[in-house]
């Protein structure tokens, strides 16, 4: 059964930093943006290091948002990406949109950049270039968001039609500079108003990281509340695999009743999830009577 101590709320990016990057952001000054990014990322850093029980769900939810953003509305909103991923046989092809989602999930899980860059549009694949660029910027002494922006610029120069690759590398470099065990998909969450080859790119990047850090902290707090509700009802669940089922919900964005849980059948799991929904401790995400998916 779950009984870890309640996760303390992480600090939130302070309002005096976020106001610097609010508004339309057309003329954000570079120093303001960098300052805001520093303040926001330091708050986010605390959240990352907590390694909360719901960290898996947090990372995958961010990956889902990043995937939707990087697809720019083509063939993918959260629901259809979620479905494509959940309804693909293991080892099967989730389709081009599903593969983009899989790539962002892999980034958030700490997989190697070279493996995911192809799905994000790096063609032809060039693992040496990716690794060399990543290493160079991850080891630089520049502040994390600046190193990330510079890495993105270098990668975008190589694949100008696949900006998501540059953004993923930026997230990777940022995480490396901050000492995180795996990147958080962040830069993709914010509509970037500059291109990597613009003069204003670095400032735009810093502002975007500040806002993305803020949103990530928001999501972290939301999931912390969901975890609390889940823990509250845990003692009421008597099914054998209930602990594993709850852990599955904390570890991913969406879980289907077909998930293999020791000691639980498909129908048993579905009954458990439906009970959790009744108790207000989980949500059914699709609104469908069949092929249902459950999450925090």
């Amino acid at each position: 059964m779950l009984a870890p101590p309640e996760t303390p709320p992480p600090p939130r990016p302070p309002a005096w930093a976020m106001t610097l990057v609010g508004g339309s952001g057309a003329d954000i000054k570079a120093l303001d943006a960098a300052f805001a990014a520093g303040a926001a990322l330091s708050a986010l850093d605390v959240a990352v290091r907590q390694n909360a029980p719901f960290a898996g769900a947090w990372r995958v939810r961010l990956a889902l948002k990043a995937a939707v953003a990087s697809l720019e509305g083509r063939a993918g909103d959260e629901t259809s990406l979620r479905d494509a991923f959940a309804l693909t046989r293991p080892g099967g092809d989730p389709g081009p949109a599903g593969r983009v989602y899989a790539a962002w999930r892999a980034l958030a899980a700490g997989r190697r950049l070279a493996d995911i860059a192809v799905d994000l549009g790096a063609s032809p694949a060039d693992p040496e270039f990716l690794n060399a660029t990543f290493d160079a910027h991850a080891r630089s002494l520049a502040p994390a968001p600046l190193a990330a922006a510079a890495a993105a610029r270098a990668v975008a120069a190589k694949w100008p039609r696949a900006i998501p690759v540059a953004i993923a590398v930026a997230d990777g470099v940022l995480a490396a500079r901050l000492g995180w065990r795996a990147p958080l998909p962040m830069l993709a969450l914010e509509a970037l108003r500059a291109r990597p080859d613009d003069a204003a790119w670095t400032a735009a990047c810093c502002a975007a990281y500040a806002r993305a850090a803020n949103r990530s902290c928001d999501l972290h707090a939301e999931l912390a509340r969901a975890e609390t509700r889940l823990q509250a009802v845990a003692p009421k669940l008597r099914a054998k695999g209930a602990g594993a089922a709850l852990a599955a919900l904390l570890d991913d964005d969406a879980v289907s009743s077909a998930t293999k849980i020791a000691g639980m059948s498909d129908r048993g799991l579905r009954r458990l999830f439906d009970r959790l929904v009744e108790l207000g401790a989980a949500r059914e995400l699709t609104g469908r009577p069949t092929f249902r998916l459950y999450g925090l």
């Binding site: 479905d83 494509a84 991923f85 309804l87 693909t88 046989r89 099967g92 092809d93 989730p94 389709g95 081009p96 599903g98 699709t286 469908r288 069949t290 092929f291």
Partner: peptide, 15 residues
């Protein structure tokens, strides 16, 4: 065969 569609019969979507 790609992801199945969440409709009766769970037909394959082709890619």
């Amino acid at each position: 065969a790609g992801p199945r569609k969440p409709v009766p019969g769970a037909p394959f979507g082709y890619v």
